[in-house]
Design a protein around this nucleic acid. Structure first.
Lengths: 205, 205
DNA sequence: CTTAGAAGTATCCAGCATGTGCACTTTTTG
DNA sequence: CAAAAAGTGCACATGCTGGATACTTCTAAG
């Protein structure tokens, strides 16, 4: 099932594909994953239900494709630049917290959807695992930086610190604090930054 | 739909109900939520598919019922006693970390299932929210205790500290660290305790 | 400007899961 | 033993996915 669909050559095709992705995202954010049926998407795009399958082999593939779509639209790379441009590793850690608070809220719905769908769908699982590996790599880069500068607090290692950081990039955590606990993005960023520094950074009074 | 089903009076009925819950849990843990169809459960229990609906009005209600079932079987209350028996608030916080590492791994599959199902099913949502509120109340009790003893670090308040603690009781976090990062329960407990103390406790060298 | 091939439509279909209705049998219990 | 409760078997409506087929419409390259 769900054999990937080759890159569209046609301009018309590309436009339709984008329209489908945009409509899917909107529908997902407005009405949730359960309401996201192929029929509902088709109607919203103004295309036949059968037509969707010309662009996405399955519902799972469609949801999975949202992953990269929102990363582009919401500027994942751009937001990450702030982290690596920091002057030192503790500052980078703080920037990482702010990056989470800046970027992730915008993709929460998609994150959660991919996460649910991944259990059935190999395509979604692939996308999820790729994104996850990238996330973990970023975390490890942070802890390595800390270690190099001698700022990684006892008893953390590059590995265990990275794992901890990675685990806190969770739609459950971020969504819970924002939506259920009513934190603002600013509060989220500041407080995560605080947690990170106190937990991981040595000599940070 | 999914009108609740009244307390069974019959001994036979109670036995069957327990058998259904046990089989459901086993199936869920072995083969995941997707494989958890009413037909599969029925076969495993050795009861007709129709018979399940005599005990649980819907699949959602069945999954939701697992919540309390595992809490009983795995001794939620008993595990929590360690927390409140602690001599002081920082010790309680440490005990809380160990409680998470002791209890939660045993109910991860059920936690995740209820969380997914709750989006469709009102019954599951009710159960989830009740459990969640209890969780949050526990966290607040911890931060209140800290505050009373003057051990709550700047800039946390009873409320914001509780929210933070609450957000870290997440199957995504716990499951991720245990399963994907390969932490042992001991490591999880120790490291969470460390994170909690450094972040929330004042004057804890 | 024409024409081959791609994009898209309309309709039907099979598969599979949920949950309900109904007549029936078996077990429990007073 | 008799009534009530528990459980069975089967049929059925509904809702979704994804595949098939024959058809029309657009677009891109010669």
């Amino acid at each position: 099932m769900s054999r990937s669909i080759e890159q569209p050559l046609n301009a018309r095709s590309r436009r339709t594909r984008q329209a489908i992705l945009a409509a899917t995202r909107a529908l997902l954010e407005e009405r949730g994953l359960d309401a996201l049926t192929m029929a509902a998407v088709a109607e919203r795009v103004g295309v036949s239900r059968r037509g969707l399958y010309l662009h996405f082999a399955s519902r799972g593939e469609l949801v999975a494709a949202l992953f990269d779509y929102v990363a582009g639209v919401e500027g994942l790379e751009r937001s990450l630049e702030h982290v690596w441009a920091a002057p030192d590793s503790p500052a980078a850690l703080t920037e990482w917290a702010h990056h989470l608070a800046r970027y992730h809220p915008n993709v929460l719905a998609v994150d959660r959807a991919v996460q649910q769908v991944r259990t059935h769908d190999p395509d979604a699982r692939r996308h999820y695992e790729r994104a996850n590996a990238a996330q973990l790599a970023n975390c490890r880069r942070l802890t390595r930086w800390l270690a190099r500068e001698g700022r990684l607090a006892e008893p953390w290692t590059e590995e265990s610190g990275a794992a901890l950081l990675w685990s806190l990039v969770s739609s459950e955590v971020i969504g819970g604090l924002l939506e259920e606990q009513g934190w603002s993005r600013e509060e989220l960023g500041e407080r995560l930054a605080l947690l990170y520094r106190r937990t991981l950074v040595a000599g940070d009074g």
